[in-house]
Write a protein that binds this DNA or RNA. Sequence first.
DNA 1: GAAGTTAAGTGGTCAGACCAGTGGGCCGCT
DNA 2: AGCGGCCCACTGGTCTGACCACTTAACTTC
Lengths: 200, 200
Amino acid sequence: MTTSKVYIETFWKIHRMIEESGLQPGDRLPSERELADRLRVGRSSVREALRALELLGLIETRRGEGTFMKPFGDHQLIQLLGSFILQGNREKRDLIETKIFIERICLQLACERLTDEKLELILQTEHTYHSFFRRIVQATDNYLLLRIWLVLSDFFEHVYTVELPSECYEQMCKALQKRSCEEAIAVYEQYVMQKMSKEN
Amino acid sequence: MTTSKVYIETFWKIHRMIEESGLQPGDRLPSERELADRLRVGRSSVREALRALELLGLIETRRGEGTFMKPFGDHQLIQLLGSFILQGNREKRDLIETKIFIERICLQLACERLTDEKLELILQTEHTYHSFFRRIVQATDNYLLLRIWLVLSDFFEHVYTVELPSECYEQMCKALQKRSCEEAIAVYEQYVMQKMSKEN
DNA sequence: GAAGTTAAGTGGTCAGACCAGTGGGCCGCT
DNA sequence: AGCGGCCCACTGGTCTGACCACTTAACTTC
């Protein structure tokens, strides 16, 4: 028989419960004992399921208090995965290369899709590398691309610290205003590509 | 006091054990009972640690047989995370768009980096969409890019079934032989882009 | 009213039991 | 000798009940 494992089923049941009851970040989940009782499984199975949810960064457990929904965005798994994946130089080179490709694409897309309000927002702010490209990637209006970039960026910042001179952001902003994707990419390549090739 | 959790410590102990004893994919780990015994912790803590390793895609457990090292590359976690992210139509549109960007980049990179042997391999084989682009992405010699593409492709094939006429592959192969990245991308865009815009 | 005490509830951990598969060794048959 | 079948030891999977460490809130006491 395909007697699927209880802790896997429990994982999905809890996941569904979270969705259906519309739990928000900060909200408390039922206690382990109550979950075990409600789902008719042992407490150890509930715990193994909760560990998975915790690793995914969906929940957080506080001893003596309970289990709580975590705000999106801070995924445990990134640190963990990073420490497993990013061990050799080969991997770091791949990371830099891939991150650059994504950013170049996003720069191009942003030029095409950037709304005027979002452009204003970008122009007004003082920028760091992260904040600037986060805005750029968000401007692409492609959530998946944003997710991928966030993961790559997270890995990256675990390994390197890179900042660009402010005139770089200014020049890219000008290009964005003109909606000139060639110019934006040219600036990007001029500053970023050479900087990265040193790191590598 | 910082009484850090046993299952976390156990996780890292097992992880270190794996590294130090140089376990290879396919090798067997000690049984749960023996691990608990050796590390002086309860079996349930060992299990919670093993669940984390399993979720990360590092090990695989087979009831009645034992716990085994898994080949690198298939990280459960990424897949799992994906199933949380990819739910609406908005996400599907993003998926298609992102997948196309990645494939276009890889096509370009492949043109530059493709070795003669790998080219031969591609030319000789009868291709499906998946097998062709898998070869292309592999030819970029960027493992991270390959992993991202595999995940996207995996999602994609859960939602759509797309195949291209064989002349498309033939034309791309010709372009690859000539190392003409413009031509390869032109063919790609001609066949794929329009096909995808229908699906969307 | 404020400070200290207590009790109930929570996650963290352990030990022990049983179930359900797997695999190897042993036995007896042909 | 070779084959088939049985059995048993071992594995992961699950449940239970117990205890610890910690938090919170209600209660008591001053």
